[in-house]
């Protein structure tokens, strides 16, 4: 299921509260400031700093 535009607009990085970028395939939200990638698993964003992956 596609993520709702309303949800995309309000989600922020839990670490810095900064704006997130959504990957084109909606597989993850990326925080450019923290260089962290928050995965979207089966349509559910996993907004946990502990489970975020560092971006290269």
């Amino acid at each position: 299921m596609a993520l709702s535009p309303d949800l995309i607009a309000i989600l922020v990085c839990p670490q810095c509260k900064g704006k997130l970028d959504l990957e084109a395939n909606e597989a993850a939200f990326v925080c450019p400031a923290c260089r962290l990638r928050y995965p979207v698993r089966e349509g559910i964003p996993v907004m946990l700093v502990d489970e975020a992956e560092p971006t290269s």
Binding site: L11, R41, P45, M47, L48
Partner: peptide
């Protein structure tokens, strides 16, 4: 999600995250 589907509710969305901090603007 299962409950939402059983009740045919379309105006609900879910996230995994903490209460402190909340990942919302």
């Amino acid at each position: 999600e299962k409950r939402q589907q059983e009740q045919n509710l379309e105006n609900v969305s879910w996230q995994i995250g903490t209460a402190t901090p909340l990942p919302f603007a």
